[in-house]
Simulated assay, not measured.
Amino acid sequence: MGCSAGLVAISLAKDLLKVHGNSLALVLSMEAVTSSGYDGKVKSMLLANTLFRMGGVAVLLSNKKNDKLKSKYKLQNLFRTHMGSDDESYQSVFQKGDDTGYVGVSLSRSILRVAANALKTNITELGPYVLPFSEQFLYGWSLITRKKEIYIPNFKKAFEHFCIHAGGKAVIDAVQERLRLSREDGEASRMTLHRFGNTSSSSVWYELGYLEAKGRVKKGDRVWQIGLGSGFKCNSAVWECISELDPNMRNAWSDKIHLYPIQIPDVADH
């Protein structure tokens, strides 16, 4: 299911827990690069060999009442957008064989535009559930009056933290610009990309681990995870922190968190 598979799995686990009482669900999100390596010579398919890195995360979900006392987060909302009915979206990330028979993943030049359209559709569905009425009104009014520039809601009034899929610098930049977020809002994504690379569906969890290790997530805070992936898909998960988190609790960042954030120069700065 591609790089947004982690949130697809959370959606499946959520549905299973609705019909199986007093249960646990274990979700594993990982990237294994060896199985999808490309040995051919087509440049658009070679690119995938350099983008991804090994990584994995395990997430335990529960519907047991007693587990609420020791749980970190509560899942508030989850919305999945699939753009597969559009040919450009469907073919933007596509596994196929080349003329010599080697199988690989082809990445289209239109992928950023496709991702932007998927994100727009997803947040249109998510917005009414998370945004304050004032932001919904401004967005709706811009549609009614048919202004040239549609109002982009201020999602910082709905969320304290953002975990944008670390698919690459261009992806993070595009989502950040689309949502009118600050560079600090994308820090967890950029630092995850810098240290671990694109670990596919597990990247949004590495980002949450970064925020926890920095001691930034407080009880009552809301976290928005945005997963982007082949299909083309855009999936959103909204979590509410329901516990006092200990930043010294060991995770993947513990040994290096004191070194971050670091300054990452733009290509033009080299």
Results as ranks from 00 to 15, higher is better:
residue 109 R to Y: 13
residue 77 N to C: 06
residue 95 Q to Y: 12
residue 95 Q to V: 12
residue 93 V to N: 01
residue 109 R to M: 12
residue 112 L to V: 15
residue 86 D to N: 10
residue 101 G to P: 04
residue 108 S to D: 12
residue 98 D to H: 03
residue 108 S to T: 15
residue 96 K to I: 03
residue 83 M to L: 15
residue 106 S to Y: 10
residue 116 A to D: 09
residue 78 L to S: 02
residue 106 S to R: 08
residue 81 T to S: 09
residue 86 D to Q: 04
residue 106 S to Q: 07
residue 116 A to E: 07
residue 107 L to Y: 11
residue 104 G to D: 02
residue 116 A to S: 13
residue 80 R to N: 13
residue 102 Y to Q: 08
residue 111 I to S: 02
residue 112 L to K: 15
residue 106 S to D: 11
residue 91 Q to A: 06
residue 77 N to H: 13
residue 103 V to H: 08
residue 99 D to C: 08
residue 89 S to H: 04
residue 113 R to M: 13
residue 109 R to N: 15
residue 109 R to E: 15
residue 99 D to R: 11
residue 101 G to C: 11
residue 116 A to Q: 10
residue 115 A to N: 06
residue 110 S to W: 07
residue 90 Y to Q: 10
residue 83 M to R: 09
residue 89 S to P: 00
residue 95 Q to P: 05
residue 109 R to D: 14
residue 79 F to D: 00
residue 106 S to I: 05
residue 81 T to I: 08
residue 79 F to Q: 00
residue 95 Q to D: 12
residue 78 L to V: 07
residue 85 S to I: 14
residue 85 S to C: 14
residue 95 Q to A: 14
residue 114 V to N: 02
residue 107 L to T: 05
residue 111 I to H: 04
residue 98 D to S: 03
residue 84 G to R: 05
residue 105 V to E: 04
residue 90 Y to N: 07
residue 94 F to T: 03
residue 88 E to C: 07
residue 78 L to Q: 01
residue 83 M to E: 13
residue 80 R to C: 08
residue 99 D to N: 13
residue 87 D to S: 13
residue 104 G to R: 00
residue 95 Q to G: 11
residue 108 S to R: 09
residue 87 D to W: 05
residue 107 L to V: 13
residue 105 V to I: 12
residue 102 Y to I: 02
residue 79 F to H: 02
residue 99 D to A: 15
residue 79 F to V: 05
residue 116 A to I: 08
residue 90 Y to L: 07
residue 100 T to C: 11
residue 101 G to V: 04
residue 87 D to G: 08
residue 95 Q to I: 13
residue 112 L to M: 15
residue 97 G to P: 03
residue 111 I to V: 14
residue 116 A to R: 06
residue 80 R to Y: 08
residue 113 R to N: 15
residue 103 V to Y: 08
residue 81 T to C: 09
residue 111 I to K: 01
residue 86 D to R: 03
residue 111 I to D: 01
residue 89 S to K: 02
residue 101 G to S: 06
residue 81 T to L: 06
residue 80 R to E: 08
residue 99 D to I: 09
residue 88 E to L: 09
residue 106 S to L: 09
residue 90 Y to R: 06
residue 81 T to V: 15
residue 92 S to F: 00
residue 100 T to M: 11
residue 86 D to L: 08
residue 88 E to N: 10
residue 106 S to W: 12
residue 116 A to W: 02
residue 98 D to G: 05
residue 110 S to K: 12
residue 87 D to N: 13
residue 78 L to E: 01
residue 92 S to C: 05
residue 109 R to F: 13
residue 112 L to S: 10
residue 91 Q to T: 04
residue 89 S to R: 00
residue 76 Q to V: 09
residue 100 T to E: 11
residue 102 Y to S: 10
residue 92 S to D: 01
residue 93 V to K: 00
residue 88 E to S: 07
residue 78 L to C: 04
residue 81 T to A: 05
residue 79 F to G: 00
residue 101 G to R: 04
residue 95 Q to S: 10
residue 114 V to H: 02
residue 94 F to N: 05
residue 105 V to L: 10
residue 84 G to L: 08
residue 104 G to F: 01
residue 87 D to Q: 14
residue 113 R to Q: 15
